[in-house]
Design a protein around this nucleic acid. Sequence first.
RNA 1: GGGCGCAUAGCUCAGCGGUAGAGCGCUGCCCUUACAAGGCAGAUGUCACAGGUUCGAUCCCUGUUGCGCCCACCA
Length: 876
Amino acid sequence: MTDTQHGPRGPHSAPADLPTQYAPAEVEGPLYERWVERGYFEADAESAKPPYAIVIPPPNVTGSLHLGHAFEHTLIDALTRRKRMQGYEALWQPGMDHAGIATQNVVERELAKEGTSRHDLGREAFTERVWRWKAESGGQISGQMRRLGDGVAWSRERFTMDEGLSRAVQTIFKRLYDDGLIYRAERIINWCPRCLTALSDIEVEYAEQDGELVSVRYGEGEDSLVVATTRAETMLGDTAVAVHPDDERYRHLVGRTVKLPLTDRAIPVVADEHVDPEFGTGAVKVTPAHDPNDFEIGRRHGLPALAVMDEHAVITAHGPFQGLDRLEARSAVVGALRAEGRIVAEKRPYPHSVGHCSRCKTTIEPRLSLQWWVKVGPLAQAAGDAVRDGEVTIHPKEMETRYFGWVDNLHDWCISRQLWWGHRIPVWYGPDGETVCVGPDEEPPSGEGWHQETDVLDTWFSSGLWPFSTLGWPERTESLEKFYPNAVLVTGYDILFFWVARMMMFGLYAMDGTPPFRTIALHGMVRDQFGKKMSKSFGNAVNPLDWMDAYGSDALRFTLARGANPGVDVPIGEDWVQASRNFCNKVWNATRFALMNGATVQGPLPDPAEMSAADRWILSRLNTVVAQTDALYDDYQFAKVSDTLYHFAWDEVFDWYVELSKTTFAAGGRAAEVSGRVLGEVLDVVLRLLHPVVPFVTDTLWTTLTGGESLVIASWPADSGFRDAAAEREIGTLQEAVTEVRRFRADQGLQPGQRVPAHLELAGTPLAAHEEAIRALLRLEPAGAEFSATASLPVAGAKVALDLSGAIDFAAEHRRLTKDLQAARKELTQTTAKLGNEAFLAKAPDHVVEKIRARRATAEADIARIEAQLENLPRG
RNA sequence: GGGCGCAUAGCUCAGCGGUAGAGCGCUGCCCUUACAAGGCAGAUGUCACAGGUUCGAUCCCUGUUGCGCCCACCA
């Protein structure tokens, strides 16, 4: 690389600066602060560079860093760091979400401990209290992100309740309201009787639960029918029984009434298509005030909705059940029905799906109430079309099906919450029933009888604006012009519906049809080393900070990146983090070696004519790896990027090239100089390629190696186009030969360090230029006068003769060679048979036939070699 | 009830029509002066089962079994 910026310390420091082991704890903290102080992560809206923006999926202000964040942040950080190095104006937009219910719950719990409640405080004092909580203990995650090395533009940090973002919320609310896309209506909503608020459909989690299905006789004698229910207590609010219009069994009852047990009411029997005659008795009790389906039936038949529970899910209906909680009421009602002999069947346990509040796990109570809604039809249509038209790409593609399935079948979105912490709905009600929606620059109506809506908005309403509200919208700021739309959204598939789809809807709506991002890259969930979901209750949850303390942030990051196959869950275990730590240490020591041997990045690369085959080989491979890395990054293949670099660095550079270069360095002279420059180049590029994933260790090493200011602002390597197939073949042959002799040595029980006299006949073979290296790698001494070969290994046309002084038993080697010979002969038979197959030759593509030919040739060569080796083995 | 996905080495996962791969783990030998957080060599798989397509299938098709996940208003 030629763009190394020299810092004040000169070309490079003495290798003695580097201890034999990498100590991340000493490096990471100060290094991160230096990056931030120098403003590397800040993004300039006025820059001439092309933009590359990613927003952070805003963590809850109540949250602290877990492995899921660490994972997601590693991916986003790697993407933005690479783009920054590629010369883009890279922006990783940080910030947090006010997390309505979650935060309110936290502060309410705090108040409960103090023996008070939000109701004692009142709305204003309570919200002040929440702000105070945020100032004191909120946003722990920001500090933890520094530990991870997240390269975010801290000066741009935003909070969804900031003034600017509140303005954005108010603006879009007003616009949607004026466009008729926000309305108020009374419907059945999901009600949490503990949080005392409405929830949207996706904030409800369904779980199989054992309940009881009781069949109850309504009415008397011939005019009776049996309905089944798992929620007996709601019968107090029944206002009809429904049957299918074509159901012969009940035709005579349709239009008539039956008496509702335990009450003095008679309720009509109605015919409705919704009823499945196959299910149960084919007759359904209808409770319009407490069941969404029943509500619809009620609407179709003009039935009254009779509410029998209050917001705490306590029975309000007059009579013996009044004041009972819904569960108490259920058994009481069943008991009373049983006493009247009206229970005709009971099924217990009866497993069925029950909805729970995603925040507090309380069972949801469907409840009739007046709420605010977003009419999602047109918005969702646009959100779907943007993906269908290819304006936005979802990665991996399989997730598109899920996206369409949701976006195309969306119910209206209930956006009002009966909470105090959040964006208060900007609507005022007048004394004569007027409703006025107030924009951000308008004075709310004042005077006798006017008051503002008390509900706040769903948290996801404001996070849906995140990609543009953080950039200053509704103002047309330079940042908005520059960084909208974002390049890509990186997030988990679990919030595809919660968040991604909403950003799509709002982004397209607010920004005149421009989607919020061009690509949606969905990642999986972090799991434990057995692929199990991590959870506190299961006891397998890990605090990422512990692992960062023990092994360094780079080790954690590398492990996560290495597991990141698109859209697939990522298992992680401590062993794997250790392995990554080992890799970081290996990089560290390889660089130490290079520094101790005069590796340099100074000056231009020598002419290839001056280089050894090993030099040309590694540079050829290096450039191939640069090209591969780019292709993989552009496809969000983080696991493969990491794996490619891991193997290239460790296997090829550190094991082979470094070992080969030792001979060169020992010899000194021009060849050593050339190799030193090549090694410097290779390390320089490898460190750059690794930097996005393991920023700390690479920056530390790179600045030492090159004297440059920082890898964060260094340039990303480009494939120079240099390839040398001949050198790659030559070194390949060398590797095979060395491995073959090593295997022989190992089989013979020779200790790795033991020097063995040997005579090498390499002239005229591809190995001719490598005698010194081969002797060094294989610990072969020059043969003395009394040399007598006891074993001779033919490899690649050359011959390596070893003097083993007759001390070795050759039986094992004979057995192994015989086994290999059999395998080679089998291969020969198979390939020959294949090449004799006319159908194969006629239909298989040329490259496959060539490959089989090559395999046959290899098998033949192997047989010859092994036979020769057996020949040379002493008998006995 | 729909939809999607997965079953490959002891574990976690890549591969996806032409001789089965990685990491960790395992076996043996070595502190070879960058690194024992290391080096070298090695073992391990009827690629879930049954059919089909093909010159050829772990890879494509159909079915079976066993697991996940998402969605849905089943009383």
